[in-house]
Simulated scan of single mutants.
Amino acid sequence: MRKQIDILNIELKKLQIKRTNIRAKKNKTEDEVKKKEYELLMIQNSLEKKATREKIKDIEVGLVELSKKYQDQYLFKINEYLKYFNPSLKLLRLNQYNTKAVYTLEILGYPITNTKIHSLKYSLSEADKSALSISFFFSKLELTPDLNNYTIIIDDPITSFDYSRKSSTINMIYRLSSKVKQIIVLTHDHRFAFDLSKKFSNSSIPCENIKINTNSETSYFQLHNIERENLSGIFKDLTVLNEYILNGAQTDLEKREVIRCIRPVIEGIFRIKYFGIIKQNEWLGDIIEKIRQSTTNTDFYRYKSILNNIIEINDYSKEFHHSNPLYFETPINDYELKSYVNNTLNLIREI
């Protein structure tokens, strides 16, 4: 209905421009016959404008009735969603102005009616403002007819939200996904993106993770392995090494990332196994020294048989460490890298 009103308002503007042009032509001409013709055209124009205004008025009356019919449902839905985010918040109807309803907010049972004294800018936290906004959004969608024809774009829906509110948002998006044609969720929060993706993992609804990457020339979309992105520490580095063995690496930068993971993985396995013995400021070189100086019946003596292998892997990875001034100039042999990664994976099994 609002689209119809917008179209008719555009038509009114066109009629007004047309009337102005007719009047200008009438004022310029000295021909009485022409003046009579222009006067008739202006009368016709007035009738068309009147008919258009009446159409707008009829549609607005229908819109008011429709608005009154759905506003109670809308208010109910908003409050239902608000319960998930903050049960102490509630909306109450205050006044009706044509097609618009004015609401007041109730906080802990106390209506905020005087906005000059109780400004929502200061009465609500950023999280509660976001909760109100997203409750309006989901409520409006739920009452939208033919929702299955819509593509919905949601931009950073969890700003200022704590874990429970993030979880509620994920559940709402998941429920909505079965009712619409497509949902696109934009977010900077990797953990939220991972949890949302995980929600869809056992669903029949397909879900793709895409991230924006950049190079020296432009930005571009790329499929995103979000599960790997949200791994941390040693598990992330182990995944990088394992995926290199399975799929290889396409660029020199990717290969350098593989090499970067070698030493942290070995150090991490030793730290886990000898928690409290290996200090936080001790690295692979220190661990090698502990093995070298170990004696029978000490913790690290059992690794003497593989010490040379650990030293060789350490020396190889040091060549490509960022502390090496020739870090980016050192060429990478793919066959050699694959051999060292395999040695690393075999070594951690022995540790």
Rank of each mutant, 00 (worst) to 15 (best):
Glu65Arg: 15
Pro87Ala: 12
Lys100Leu: 10
Gly109Leu: 06
Ser177Ala: 11
Thr52Gly: 02
Asp146Ile: 09
Lys121Gly: 11
Lys179Glu: 11
Asn148Ser: 14
Lys90Phe: 06
Ala51Lys: 14
Asn98Ser: 12
Val180Met: 00
Tyr163Glu: 15
Asp128Ile: 04
His118Asn: 03
Ser168Asp: 12
Glu142Arg: 14
Ile170Ser: 05
Leu105Gly: 01
Met172Ala: 14
Arg93Tyr: 03
Phe137Asn: 06
His118Gly: 04
Lys181Asp: 08
Leu147Met: 01
Tyr84Lys: 15
Gln182Ala: 12
Arg175His: 14
Glu106Pro: 00
Phe76Lys: 11
Thr169Asp: 04
Tyr174Asp: 11
Tyr110Leu: 08
Phe161Gln: 09
Glu126Met: 14
Leu124Ala: 02
Ile184Asn: 07
Phe161Ala: 07
Asp156Leu: 02
Leu89Gly: 02
Pro87Ile: 05
Lys83Phe: 05
Arg175Thr: 09
Ala101Val: 15
Val64Lys: 08
Asp162Ala: 05
Ile153Phe: 10
Asn79Met: 04
Ile170Val: 05
Glu126Tyr: 11
Phe138Ser: 06
Lys140Gly: 14
Asn171Phe: 06
Gln182Lys: 09
Tyr70Asp: 11
Ser88Gly: 08
Gln71Asp: 11
Lys140Cys: 09
Val64Trp: 06
Ile56Glu: 02
Asp128Gln: 04
Ile184Gly: 03
Ile154Asn: 07
Asp162Val: 04
Glu106Arg: 07
Lys100Thr: 15
Asn95Asp: 08
Tyr110Ile: 13
Lys90His: 05
Gln73Glu: 14
Thr52Leu: 11
Leu94Glu: 04
Tyr97Leu: 13
Ile158Ala: 00
Ser67Ala: 00
Lys50Thr: 15
Thr151Met: 15
Ile154Gly: 05
Ser123Lys: 04
Ser160Ala: 13
Ser167Phe: 12
Lys68Asp: 09
Leu94Tyr: 05
Ser123Glu: 07
Val102Ala: 06
Ile59Leu: 15
Asp155Ser: 03
Lys50Met: 13
Asp72Val: 05
Asp156Met: 08
Asp155Arg: 01
Leu108Ile: 11
Ile183Met: 00
Lys100Glu: 14
Thr144Pro: 02
Thr151Pro: 09
Asp146Asn: 11
Asp156Lys: 12
Thr113Ile: 13
Lys140His: 07
Glu126Arg: 00
Asp58Ser: 15
Thr151Val: 15
Glu142Asp: 15
Lys121Leu: 07
Tyr122Asp: 13
Leu105Pro: 03
Ile117Leu: 06
Leu132Cys: 02
Leu75Asp: 05
Lys69Ala: 06
Lys116Cys: 02
Leu91Arg: 01
Lys181Ser: 14
Leu75Thr: 08
Asn79Trp: 03
Asn98Ala: 10
His118Gln: 02
Thr104Cys: 04
Thr99Met: 13
Asp146His: 03
Ile152Gln: 12
Ser160Ile: 10
Ala101Cys: 08
